[in-house]
């Protein structure tokens, strides 16, 4: 046995890695458990009666009692919670009280719409926000800086739903450049197979270019508006991260070597803000994935945010708890991806 211990598949380094990974997984589990518990109990405390939602106001007492028992509401809270956990592990989040379908199925239906919108918005927002923030810091107090900061101020102060309404009024009703609310025109909706639920991808996979163009013309305005606010946030943060780096001594060193200002900024300073910028991007992405409720409402976008809001207003606690759990998982996953990327971007953490 001594030989095995010596040759060691588990070198000290690997053992440490393994322990770190296990701790990370455990902490994710605890986080999610806490999240479910919190939402579950808050949901049960609310003075909402799910039974009346099902049987109606004027149902006889016998029908009410039967449904009450069917939902398991006669049991102690803790038993209900354990039961919920048990089924949650098997991916059963219960049925939605309003749609009658399993919550997970509902979410699976609305979530792709939000993923699609959020992703397009983030690509645009990051693609513009990061370079603008860097330029703004690089030429601080020049006209570029002033223009970027003014645009950001507008983006920060103008509410999204207002921008959405204005956008619809100008580009849809007025100029007719884009399509109106919804994800796709009705005529195209069944002209291709929805495999992923992401219409841009599904239409391409089906080779249905007319439908693709139509989907693009629908997504462009809401995505642009979400991208605008993501961009303002990202560029403001990038600007301040960069400004802090540019006062560092190693920037002088790079310039003493004879590097141009542009090369100094992009090659030397940018690496040093990459981790912080990534965090900001990840947070805004997670934020958009939760569903931009107002934008989804204005554009009649059948996404996650709208589903969650209507479930909340209808007192559909199964759906609310399910959605909260999904949001938690998204956050945890994005954080996990970030942690991995930090190691790639910052050699000191390896």
């Amino acid at each position: 046995m001594r030989v095995a211990a010596q040759g060691g598949y588990l070198t000290p380094r690997r053992r440490r890695r393994l322990r770190e990974t296990l701790v990370a997984i455990a902490s994710i589990g605890v986080t999610l458990l806490g999240l479910v518990a919190l939402t579950f109990f808050i949901g049960r405390m609310l003075p909402l009666d799910p039974v009346i939602k099902i049987v109606g106001e004027n149902a006889p007492q016998a029908a009410y009692d039967r449904v009450y028992r069917e939902l398991g509401l006669d049991q102690p809270l803790i038993v209900q919670f354990l039961g919920y956990l048990k089924s949650a592990v098997t991916l059963d989040l219960g049925n939605s009280l309003t749609s009658g379908r399993p919550v997970l199925e509902d979410i699976g239906r609305v979530f792709p719409a939000t993923i699609e919108l959020a992703t397009v918005a983030m690509v645009i927002g990051t693609g513009l926000g990061v370079p603008l923030g860097v330029l703004s810091a690089m030429y601080a107090n020049s006209w570029i800086d002033h223009v970027v900061r003014t645009v950001c101020l507008i983006g920060y102060s103008a509410p999204n739903f207002w921008l959405g309404l204005m956008g619809l009024m100008i580009f849809y009703a007025g100029l007719g450049w884009v399509s109106g609310p919804g994800r796709i025109d009705f005529v195209y909706e069944y002209g291709f197979e929805q495999r992923t639920g992401l219409l841009l991808i599904d239409t391409i996979m089906a080779g249905n270019w007319d439908a693709f163009r139509n989907a693009v013309s629908h997504i462009v305005l809401p995505a642009a508006i979400l991208a605008f606010s993501a961009m303002t946030y990202i560029s403001r943060m990038t600007r301040s991260f960069m400004a802090a780096q540019l006062t560092q001594e190693y920037i002088i060193t790079a310039r003493v070597k004879g590097l141009s200002w542009r090369r100094t900024v992009w090659r030397h300073a940018f690496r040093n803000i990459a981790v912080q910028v990534l965090t900001v991007i990840a947070l805004s992405y997670a934020f958009l994935l939760e569903g931009a409720v107002l934008t989804e409402t204005v554009f009649a976008w059948p996404g996650f945010g709208r589903y969650l809001t209507s479930a909340l207003l209808a007192g559909d606690m199964n759906a609310v708890v399910g959605c909260t759990l999904i949001i938690g998982i998204i956050f945890v996953t994005i954080n996990l991806i970030c942690d991995v990327l930090y190691r790639v971007l910052d050699p000191r953490t390896r």
Binding site: Q248, E249, Y250, I252, T253, A254, H268, R271, N272, R348
Partner: peptide
């Protein structure tokens, strides 16, 4: 400590 780029 400050005059070398910490990530290179």
């Amino acid at each position: 400590k400050f005059s070398l780029n910490p990530l290179m």
